[in-house]
Design a protein around this nucleic acid. Structure first.
Lengths: 273, 273
DNA sequence: CCTATTCTTTTCAATATATGAAAAGTACTT
DNA sequence: AAGTACTTTTCATATATTGAAAAGAATAGG
């Protein structure tokens, strides 16, 4: 799973223009993101990289500030450096700032967790969140990636993507996570058509057991769908009768955000919720 | 500035255990974080890396999902991948979740921008923020790095670090940003002693013109200073008479956070503000 | 407290890989 | 439509990366 793409490529095509060392370093970074703390040997086994090689990579990541050693010796862990670098990219998403007040208002009104997400490859990345006041919460976090094909927040975007983008999307597999996961291209296309017709996307435990969600697309001034807004909750609270109200609130918020996006500038003086 | 540390090392020591290609790739990532969109040639000039080499690096970063090409061809930009990877590290900081309600309460009470920061190398990284309602705001963002020696949020942590950590800290230079920046070791040590005596740190335009701040340390259950909490505002609003009130509010919030950190678990049922 | 075991770090020679010059191919500009 | 600037490919060379093996630390076990 953490193998560099070159090796993972089933067809042994020459995989042109690929710098193996760099890819290996990034794999190490990603592996460290998953484990809290590791020692060299464990990590070396996990990644299938020899000790000395990993030692050099970790030393380099350390010198560049991405990794540090916990305590005196032994275990390695990530610093916040990767997050800092990435934060510069997030900062450029006007969407986030414009949507913020409406995300908060929607959370207050619905009393459920609100997520704002954008499409990135085969997944949706949560770029903002306001949690529910209920004591029973779904475990999600800002920066989390959800598979687009089985999350409401993903389907609400996919439903409005161009044929070309969808073609590229379907190059990725559609892994099955639960019995209700839609993992066939045909079925997903039908689901997306349904989503377009209704104007909102649903997820009934398609990704994680016990978790449901509704989502609507957010259009930018040019009319393209640029993000999506969702309400996520435990199945227990996802009553059939309540959905219409959730959708209404979502649509109101999404429209307000679209409107505020018009100017496209950060300090927009637009009306607040 | 974006040169890999190997080359930047003034003393031409052999710089042991260093993987140049990986470091170059990370440099590219960081360069892309700074520019929104670049074409290959510009980036190649900026980094002093030849075209074909950069081409390979960008191709690799692309295959690994860290970079993508805008539009059809031409310009490169960062994806959210680095941010996603880093978000896993941030998520492990219990501090952030525990502090959140108090950060919000403090923002409401003070009506100024509240920042929560942790020390990372020679800087402080802002891990959470709630902005002021005032129309005149200081430009800051979550994920931002501030130089520790000339930011209140940094000095409030430095003041309580061990001699060993401080020694390591002083290996970095203390760049001067404004006429009031403290850039000598002796002077900074005096300032830190003063900070300890008072119990709070100040910054009068030491980093950025027109920006002032007050900050207090946050101690974890073991008594170590693990983070700091600041109020940041334009000099115009930083009235001498108001500081005592800001400090009182900051200390109250910091104490509450320290208390709530006791359990050290995420879903702490502790009292809310 | 000493020995055994496991993990980290260093060394080193073989080899695979990255490198930049130059050329070919594209995409803009005027 | 010709010119200019940028991107991509090719390729021979030099270099950096590689893992085996060994030395050195640290930790655990008796």
């Amino acid at each position: 799973m953490a193998l560099s793409r070159k090796l993972a490529a089933a067809d042994d095509a020459p995989a042109p223009y690929f710098t193996a060392t760099l890819a290996k370093g990034l794999d190490v970074l990603e592996a460290l993101a998953e484990v809290e703390d590791v020692n060299l040997t464990d990590l070396s086994r996990r990644l299938g990289v020899s000790g000395p090689t990993l030692f050099r990579i970790l030393a380099t990541l350390g010198q560049c500030g991405y990794v540090q050693k916990a305590a005196k010796t032994s275990r390695y862990r990530l610093t916040l450096k990767a997050w800092e670098v990435g934060a510069r990219a997030v900062r450029r998403l006007t969407m986030r700032d414009v949507a913020r007040p409406w995300v908060e208002a929607l959370a207050k009104e619905s009393r459920e967790a609100v997520h704002l997400g954008v499409l990135q490859g085969s997944g949706v990345v949560i770029i903002d969140k306001v949690d529910t006041p209920h004591p029973v919460k779904v475990d999600t976090y800002v920066g989390q990636r959800a598979p687009a094909h089985c999350a409401a927040i993903g389907k609400a975007i996919l439903a409005y993507e161009s044929a070309a983008t969808l073609d590229a999307f379907f190059d990725h597999a559609l892994p099955r996570f639960t019995p209700t996961t839609i993992s066939g291209r045909r079925q997903l296309e039908r689901e997306l058509a349904l989503t377009r017709d209704r104007g909102y996307a649903l997820n009934h435990e398609e990704w994680r057991q016990g978790v449901c969600a509704v989502a609507v697309p957010i259009r930018c001034h040019s009319g393209e769908v640029a993000a999506s807004l969702s309400l996520t909750m435990p199945t227990e609270r996802f009553a059939k009768e309540a959905i219409a109200q959730f959708v209404a609130a979502l649509l109101r918020a999404a429209q307000a955000i679209s409107r505020d996006l018009g100017g496209e500038r950060r300090e927009s003086g637009a009306s607040r919720p």
